[in-house]
């Protein structure tokens, strides 16, 4: 469904990706973990063509997308729902208009149908009765969930979640976890989720990939990841500040080695 081969990306002198390759099958949920600034969001954005890779290729449903013309790219983008890290709701529109944005623009639903879809999708993310509010009137977690509702409104074949549960309370986080699993089970939706929340990573993932220094450090089932011997991965999933991962401004790294 999604294939990434030998991806390179840098911004000016800053190298973000240096040779990333992996595949995601249809109906699979892959979670990407990795430190802040390790390039997780940039990776997701390249998958929808918002950022062009410097080298390497991304195949969506067998189609190479990095050099597509605008209109062809748009066809690919229609298959993909994207949940932005900061929600990125349109703040001039109401919640209902946000969620139904793609419906009107792509597929020409009637107003009545669109209303029902909006209500259903908002219910799926645990929201109701906020259709007429503007994004500025919502809390951070509510915005995030409206962003998820907007991404799933079109029933895309692929969903890319950039930290779907960050900023949500534990109960709501689990509602979103269940939603990701439900979409996978019922409609075979392929999903890639970036998360820092290891609990939800273990729960939703078929496989977990760790991004480190521009490469995939390790990729495997939650079980394999939990039992990994790699010291960097071990430090990361246990969430310890001691270990081989360098932290700028800290001198803690030698203590344990």
């Amino acid at each position: 469904m999604i294939q990434i081969s030998d991806l390179f990306k840098c911004f000016g002198r800053k190298i973000v990706h240096q040779g990333i390759s992996f595949e995601v099958d249809k109906g699979e949920v892959l979670t990407i973990i990795g430190g802040s600034g390790s390039g997780k969001s940039v990776l997701l954005k390249q998958m929808v063509g918002l950022i062009k890779p410097d080298r390497g290729e991304i195949y969506i449903d067998g189609k190479a997308i990095s050099h597509l013309e605008e209109e062809e790219l748009q066809e690919v983008q229609k298959m993909i729902g994207y949940v932005f890290q900061e929600a990125a709701l349109f703040d001039s529109l109401t919640v209902a208009e946000n969620v139904s944005f793609g419906l009107y623009n792509l597929l020409k639903f009637s107003e009545h149908e669109a209303k029902k879809i909006v209500r259903d999708k908002l219910a799926l993310v645990g929201l109701s009765g906020i259709e007429d509010l503007k994004p500025a009137q919502l809390s951070g977690g509510m915005k995030k969930r409206v962003g998820i509702a907007r991404a799933i409104a079109l029933n895309p074949k692929i969903l890319l979640y950039d930290e779907p549960t960050t900023g949500l309370d534990p109960v709501m986080s689990d509602v979103i976890n269940d939603l990701i699993l439900k979409l996978k089970k019922e409609t075979q939706t392929t999903a890639i989720a970036v998360t820092h929340d290891m609990k939800s990573a273990y729960k939703i993932s078929d496989r977990i990939a760790m991004l480190y220094e521009g490469k995939i450090l390790e990729i495997g089932t939650p079980q394999q990841i939990q039992n990994s011997k790699n010291p960097i991965l071990r430090q990361f999933i246990s969430g310890s500040s001691f270990g081989p991962i360098p932290i700028p401004g800290h001198k803690n790294n030698e203590h344990r080695n």
């Binding site: 929808v48 994207y82 932005f84 703040d91 001039s92």
Partner: peptide, 20 residues
Amino acid sequence: ELGTMKVTEQIDALYTLGTN
């Protein structure tokens, strides 16, 4: 307005919702 939309990724969001 457009600048704010750009820096808050709303322009990116338009692309992902199939709108140029």
